[in-house]
């Protein structure tokens, strides 16, 4: 048996807030195989976003191990993490995070500047990706001239621009209406079908239709689906 693509062991993330220690993640163990579509479910405050950011190397764990293809993120310095993100990660955010002064094309090409790709090939690759998400005709539009769903598709194209092994999406449909939301889900599902490893953090249950694996988080711990359902039911009864 080969090494798993992602291996997380005893992962903890604690931080101080108002004099109290918040245990955002409190001992999480997960293994994720390459080429899977994993959906992380959980109510707000369950630590699911924290997990995604730790996995993406945007935050440092309090303790525990994170390894992607055997590379230990928890042992890398900031520079190595930045280079790792550049090489292996694509991020999709709830609020799209496009640079408002840049066109769709420039936004998609932006990460390649840091990788030192030549201007001509940056443009070519960005146009190809915009075409792939169905926005080739919007290449010269600025984010303010695009709908939410279109902006998120630009963001997905940007996430793919360095050909990452892992695409991480944090509530990608959270700011979108139902129709645009499902369109984005289909785009992400297509990425998975094309062979990429995708991990989506969401509390939108519709996303689970596309998932090959599900992770449920409650109060910083991984729980089974049954436990998760029970807790959700309990919460509804309290209300």
């Amino acid at each position: 048996m080969g090494k798993p693509f992602i291996r997380i062991v005893g992962l903890k993330k604690h931080f101080e807030m108002g004099g109290q220690t918040v245990r955002a993640l409190d001992g999480v163990d997960v293994e994720i195989e390459a080429g899977t579509f994993t959906v992380v479910m959980g109510p707000s405050g369950s630590g699911k976003s924290t997990l995604l950011y730790l996995l993406g190397g945007l935050d440092r764990p309090t303790s525990g191990e994170i390894a992607i293809e055997g590379e230990r993120l928890d042992q890398m310095d900031e520079n190595a993490l930045a280079l790792f993100r550049r090489r292996a990660m694509g991020f999709v955010f709830q609020s799209f995070n496009l640079v408002t002064s840049m066109t769709a094309l420039e936004n998609v090409a932006f990460p390649m500047q840091f990788a030192g790709v030549a201007a001509a090939s940056r443009r070519e690759r960005a146009l190809g990706l915009l075409n792939q998400v169905g926005l080739a005709n919007r290449a010269d539009h600025r984010p303010s001239e695009l709908s939410g769903g279109q902006q998120q598709r630009v963001a997905i194209a940007r996430a793919l621009v360095n050909n990452p092994k892992l695409v991480l999406a944090d509530e990608p449909t959270g700011n979108l209406d139902t129709t645009s939301g499902s369109a984005i889900m289909h785009v992400l599902s297509d990425l998975h079908k094309a062979g990429r490893t995708v991990l989506v953090v969401t509390h939108d249950p519709r996303m689970t239709r596309f998932a090959t694996h599900k992770i449920h988080l409650l109060d910083g711990h991984i729980v089974t689906e049954a436990e998760y359902e029970a807790a959700a039911l309990e919460a509804m009864q309290v209300e």
């Binding site: 945007l58 930045a82 993100r85 090489r87 995070n97 990460p111 840091f114 990788a115 360095n162």
Partner: peptide
């Protein structure tokens, strides 16, 4: 600040 966060997410080093 958000733009800086984004730059870092897409692979900008501290030096960049």
């Amino acid at each position: 600040t958000k733009e800086i966060g984004l730059m870092k997410a897409v692979g900008a080093t501290n030096r960049d």
